[in-house]
Amino acid sequence: MFKKILFATSATNACDHAARVAFDMARRYNAHIDAFHVIGVPTRGFSQVVVDLTTGEQVALDDNYRDLVKEEIRAYYDHQIKPSMDCAIEVAVGEAHREILRLARRTQPDIIVMGGSTGATGAYAARRNITGSTFQQVAKAAHCPVMVINRPAGSFWGGFSNIVFGTDFSESADTAFAFAFDLAKTFDCELLLLHALDITGCQINTLHSQDDIDDQIRKARQQMRFRYISKMRDFKNYEVDVWEGIPFVEIVKYAREKHADLIVMGHHTRKKTGDGEGALGSVAEQVILRANCPVISINRPIPR
């Protein structure tokens, strides 16, 4: 399932947790891994000057500088890149999300792994809304699953054994289910299916009666059986739950309680992501920010 991994990294400690997972996956699944770094944004029109996103400094870009950056990345991940590992280090210049998508389109990886924040520093990076928005834009447009590790992957010990699949019964959730189920079968994991019933409406006006909530939970369980369980045939290693509350909070809590080492969710491509000010809209994005395990977001069916 993971034969080709695109690990997009700032090569700073902001991506250390992501690196641990990405290189672990490469070793475990014998995959090719491209460690990809976007050096910075070209400035001065057509000149060769680039603002390095990591240092915030202006650099004259040439082959030497590229090689230097590649060397630094290799050194930074030296303890993780095993001699037997099929690993390539790639660098590019441009807007981070655009270059990640460009490379992904060319190399067609099975998964993109990235940190939640590039760790870009300085007013320049902040103004250009680089921090944190890269993964939003990649998750929105990528044609493969995108795994984000934003916080220390507390319950990730290597490999996957407990996968939480969070659903809102949308089309993209169905797509995410197909992937999560595949993953669970392939790697012999427990699949934990959760629907978080959104009762946030009660804060605004109407308080749901408990009967009403129970009724909705019953309906959600039926949906789960109809949409997912019926498709799992003889796969028995699963659990189904419906929790009520604020959806992203419930998903994060559920994953913590179940010691999940992975959350899989759909990502609504049509939903506009923020307004460029770093505001995160969808439930998936909130989960990415808060979960302490890797989160895979999927926005379209994965071709097999």
Binding site: R44, G45, F46, S47, Q48, V49, A60
Partner: peptide
């Protein structure tokens, strides 16, 4: 920065 001025490192 018109007329190419933007791009010329020598005259930054």
């Amino acid at each position: 920065g018109g007329g190419g001025f933007n791009g010329i490192g020598l005259y930054r």
